[in-house]
Nucleic acid binder design. Structure first.
Lengths: 264, 264
DNA sequence: CGGTCACGATTGGTCAGACCAAAACCGTGT
DNA sequence: ACACGGTTTTGGTCTGACCAATCGTGACCG
């Protein structure tokens, strides 16, 4: 890909390498743009393009003003969910594939949690289920607590890489399906008894294989639901921006859209 | 964060919205930068920053030359694996955790491959094993073909999200432990007979549970090797080799770092 | 003495115009 | 027909300037 090596790529790769290698640790401030551009022997415009990309990757946080500047940051897990959501929206990945990916991670996480969970973590998992039960009416809250349950199980796995990636996937999954298919659960109480409680029970007993089996059952049910809805093989690509606001701001969007519409 | 809405954000959001909404479909070419900048009422530098970001997101493919320009593209799955890789590169992830993550994905991939593999894909898996056998002397080539085997299995799973992410992780894994323990395999032929061949065999027979079990055995062996080497709990340090190649000397690097010390 | 507010310094954000380099087009010459 | 070199289009980079946000500072006043 870098057949014609560009200066901005060099800037990005250079800074990225320094950040990832620990030479530039999170929290440290970069020099002002003019100074850094001079140090790297590139123009400020070129440097800015690179900083923009790094900022978009979540490696830098840039602020204006006197004490502003670029600060090295640890990229949030949201960057993963953002890119997955992007894939989803462009129809490169189907709902079934994403669900499969989730299943691989979550089943493993449940199995690990059965062995490693601390009493505290076990308690947290149980708490999320209580909250789930309490919100039997509100489908939105129900969805939220369902994800909290998965998150608690993931954290109990003791593998942050696993849990953070999982959460990113769940966020992307939830963002893509948002509120449209909320009412697929006939009876939340029964759902918990049949699907969630066995997971908690197995993890509580420290039974690896049962934990795995229980989580597998949960995902079988989820995948069946996707199939019945007919959305398993088709990603929800073209929605309006408002629905897929994964990044959270539709602010500048409308402004620019109107600007684009005027000229066409 | 974007309290002051910036023009480049407006450009990114605007074009992103147009692409995701289907108004700009993959394959369509954007106007030349000068013209598009004029249409959006921004300067070319600002537009270029936006195009850079969109290109980095995988939504645009930019080429130089007379027939060059920005072409709308569907983002490849590699963007997801890249962000996941970025996630674990910036977190303190141990070799054991990474291996666990790989196991979750690869075991699932093997199981899926047993059901979905085409004859062609099966043949490709077998080919990689042949190459593995043929390179019994060269440890580097052996490593390479070992990864090719895993790649082939992953692709046979029929889930690009799964396979792409797996490959990204494998590359990172291999890069991290490249030099240290090349000679941990006593007898490659026996290794293949005990670990790899059962995987191929199970996938060939379409036996899901056997494929899963065989891949699990493979990873158990790998994790045991990591434990014996005592590097299972060691954090993955990223040794990015290529330093900033703009100035041509490492002088600016140290200057920058010393300049950074004063701030923060 | 302490709080408030305006000024100014610092820094990112944007703009304008120019030139360089890559790459495909096209006409010329053999 | 074919190779080749100029032409043209387009992205890549540089320079220098100005705008705007933000915070530090110190004068001013209660």
């Amino acid at each position: 890909m870098p057949y014609p090596p560009t200066a901005v790529d060099a800037v990005v790769e250079g800074l990225r390498g320094r950040i990832l290698s620990g030479s530039l640790q999170p929290g440290t401030s970069l020099p002002p743009e003019r100074e850094l551009a001079s140090q790297l022997a590139v123009s400020r415009a070129t440097l800015r393009e690179g900083l923009s990309i790094l900022s978009q990757m979540g490696l830098l946080s840039i602020h204006r003003g006197r004490t502003g500047g670029a600060v090295v940051t640890a990229p949030p897990a949201t960057t993963v969910s953002a890119s997955i959501a992007l894939l989803f929206q462009t129809r490169a990945v189907t709902a079934g594939q994403l669900c499969e990916f989730r299943r691989a991670l979550e089943v493993e996480a449940a199995q690990l949690a059965a062995v490693r969970r601390s009493p505290q973590e076990l308690k947290e998992i149980a708490t999320t289920l209580d909250a789930y039960v309490a919100s039997s009416q509100d489908t939105a809250a129900q969805n939220l607590h369902g994800r909290a349950f998965h998150h608690a199980v993931a954290r109990a796995s003791g593998n942050p890489l696993l849990s953070e990636t999982m959460m990113s996937l769940n966020d992307a999954f939830a963002a893509c399906f948002h509120l449209q298919h909320t009412a697929r659960a006939p009876d939340p109480a029964q759902l918990i008894r049949d699907l969630h409680w066995p997971i908690l029970n197995a993890i509580s007993r420290g039974d690896e294989s049962d934990a795995r089996r229980a989580m597998l059952t949960h995902f079988d049910q989820l995948q069946n639901a996707l199939s019945e809805l007919g959305i398993s093989d088709r990603a929800i690509g073209n929605q309006t921006e408002g629905d897929l606001a994964v990044t959270g701001d539709g602010n500048g969007s409308s402004r620019c859209r109107s600007a684009l519409a005027g000229r066409g």
